[in-house]
Design a protein around this nucleic acid. Structure first.
Length: 279
DNA sequence: AGCATCACCTGGCTGC
DNA sequence: TGCAGCCAGGTGATGC
């Protein structure tokens, strides 16, 4: 499922394929993708506009336009953005909900079987060109950096389980279930630990693990699970799944100690971890 | 305010 | 083989 590394990989694809291009025609065919405004309104605010930048905060993509507005795209669980070089020769696949023609004859297509993904255009824009509603997010570890001091501030006064904190976009932006589990494993802290009980050394280990796991995952183009749902803009798979230490590996040996990885439940959550390495 | 829980949605998998 | 039931999981609403 697209988390920060996957969305960052898509952002880099958009930078190459879409930035500097004009949207000549936009078709919305799905019923649920555009729900913040009417599809007709979204189309009217996109057609003829030049895409000036490709930005990202957390799992959200933001494409500032020459109108001063911003196109926001969220892939949610199953959304894919695909850049099609020869649209006349490549029929849209099933579950294609938005098609945007670019002024170089290529197309940007949005495919989303589970229809959770979303497109909208907003004119409530900050001086940095991102939507005002992005103010609610915590720091993005890749776009803005996150040191241990900032992490400690973000966790201050909270008692929730660590995985709940890591996946709370107001605390840190961009981490979902897969990377939260991998970060906890690398930092050797259990995902169900209450954040109020973390030692200074554990906070340092977590800050380092957040940086290294996300940086390496971005370097490898994100994780594509066996359902092959996540691909980048040109249809390539990510390869970070080969580095997963715990996620989806219940019963398989922990790379560090050889004991079986467990799939644990706490509250309504699930996490993969090694009870021997993580405390 | 902070935290837990639930609804949303549908393709695909599991198990009978 | 068919099908019911469940799971995936980020986000926002709700309730405590």
């Amino acid at each position: 499922m697209p988390e920060l590394p996957e969305v960052e990989t898509v952002r880099r694809g958009l930078e190459a394929a879409v930035v500097g291009r004009r949207l000549t025609a936009v078709r919305v065919t799905g019923r649920r993708t555009v729900r913040r405004q009417s599809p007709g309104e979204l189309v009217a605010r996109l057609e003829g506009r030049l895409v000036e930048r490709a930005d990202r905060r957390g799992k959200y993509l933001a494409l500032p336009l020459d109108s001063g507005e911003v196109l926001v795209v969220h892939l949610r669980m199953s959304g894919q953005l695909l850049h099609v070089l020869e649209p006349d020769r490549v029929a849209p696949v099933a579950h294609t909900h938005v098609v945007a023609a670019l002024d170089d004859g290529t197309e940007l297509r949005f495919v989303d079987p589970r229809t959770f993904g979303e497109w909208y255009v907003t004119d409530e824009v900050r001086p940095d060109g991102l939507p005002e509603e992005f103010d609610r997010f915590g720091p993005d570890p890749v776009a803005e950096g996150l040191g241990v001091a900032r992490l400690r501030r973000q966790l201050a006064g909270r008692t929730m389980p660590l995985k709940a904190a890591l996946t709370d976009q107001r605390i840190v932006a961009g981490i979902g279930s897969i990377y939260a589990d991998e970060i906890c494993h690398l930092a050797r802290v259990a995902p169900d630990r209450r954040v109020s009980t973390l030692s200074a050394a554990e906070e340092r280990a977590l800050a380092r693990a957040i940086d290294s796991v996300l940086a390496e995952a971005v370097r490898l183009g994100g994780s594509t699970l066996s359902d092959a749902r996540y691909v980048n803009l040109t249809g390539e798979l990510g390869t970070y799944q080969s580095r997963h230490g715990v996620y989806g590996r219940a019963g398989e040996p922990c790379f560090a100690c050889g004991r079986p990885v467990e799939r644990i439940h706490f509250g309504a959550r699930v996490a993969y971890c090694c009870r021997h390495c993580q405390h």
